[in-house]
């Protein structure tokens, strides 16, 4: 059963009681909260995600509670708990949805050690996966959201989960988080994109989540083989540049963007090296989103023709 098939009332009842349990790719989560905004937000953003059948095992456990008002708080706040233990500082209730996304990201980095977790957006077309590894602020989520509306399947906008044994990238198929002017840029680029209500004034500015298309969510259990690794850099006023990146430098940057390389040790490094060897590695510098998307499409077609 899908989350969206629950009515708002039934959803609220689960959230207030035993918890709402749903799955994104390989991770299932149980969430408890009284907050109506979170109920409505989840109902919208995660409507196509499968519910975890009652009584089944969930990987993680989150509770959002409104703490008693403290001195100096001017608006209602919400405190997140993992395993019933407070985590992160309280945030205003209006920021509860971005908070849920941070918690789900935290959950991947804390418990996802059966994958090599690379800080990268990941997309798929014709069975071939594209990784966009980059630090925050490089425009990777914006580019990812744009590609989703130009024929690429969304695997993940934040973490590429790489299987140790097969090297395949596993989808998370979660909403894409966009911030500040990216939201308007994407609305203009893809008017069909749907967003959650933006949260203003967070530590990262204004945040909104773009819903993952239903067809992409339905394929959340289909991994894909990485073929391209493109290192994006949004740079205002820059002329478009898409050029090969030396493999050694590609590997070096990938090790920096791999959040659990320390734990993965030698196996992890060997897997990254294999990934870089087998993939086409490129640097992408761009100003206009449409140019970047066209360049990536051309890159994908070139390999199609060559192959």
């Amino acid at each position: 059963m899908k989350l969206g098939q629950l009515g708002l009332q039934a959803l609220g009842k689960r959230l207030r009681g035993p918890g709402l349990a749903w799955r994104s790719g390989p991770f299932s989560i149980r969430l408890r909260t009284d907050l109506v905004a979170v109920r409505d937000g989840l109902h919208f953003l995660y409507a196509d995600h499968p519910l975890v059948p009652g009584g089944d095992f969930c990987d993680g456990d989150i509770t959002l509670r409104q703490p008693r008002a403290a001195w100096g708080w001017r608006r209602p706040m919400v405190q997140a708990h993992v395993d019933y233990q407070p985590i992160f500082e309280p945030v205003p209730v209006a920021h509860a949805l971005p908070l849920v996304e941070w918690l789900l990201n935290w959950h991947v980095t804390a418990h996802g050690h059966h994958f090599l977790t690379v800080h990268a957006a990941a997309l798929e077309r014709d069975g071939k996966a594209l990784l966009l590894p980059a630090p925050s602020g490089s425009g990777k989520s914006t580019l990812c959201a744009a590609l989703v509306h130009r024929g690429w399947r969304l695997l993940s906008d934040e973490y590429a989960l790489i299987d140790f044994a097969t090297g395949l990238v596993h989808p998370l198929a979660r909403p894409v988080s966009l911030k500040n002017q990216s939201i308007e840029v994407l609305r203009a680029f893809a008017p069909e994109a749907v967003f959650s209500a933006p949260a203003h004034g967070t530590p990262k500015g204004t945040l909104a989540q773009m819903k993952a298309p239903a067809a992409h969510v339905q394929r959340m259990d289909e991994p894909a083989c990485p073929v391209w690794i493109v290192f994006p850099q949004w740079s205002p006023g820059a002329t478009l540049l898409l050029q090969a990146r030396p493999k050694a430098r590609a590997l070096l940057e990938l090790t920096r963007q791999t959040v659990n390389l320390d734990l993965a040790g030698h196996d992890g490094f060997a897997r990254l090296a294999e990934l870089v060897t087998a993939s086409e590695c490129l640097d992408l510098r761009y100003d206009m989103l449409a140019d970047a998307v066209a360049a990536i499409d051309a890159m994908a077609q070139a390999i199609d023709h060559a192959g």
């Binding site: 001017r74 500082e89 920021h95 004034g201």
Partner: peptide, 10 residues
Amino acid sequence: RLRHRPPGLT
């Protein structure tokens, strides 16, 4: 503990 003011306020 009493004085502790979390961030995210204006």
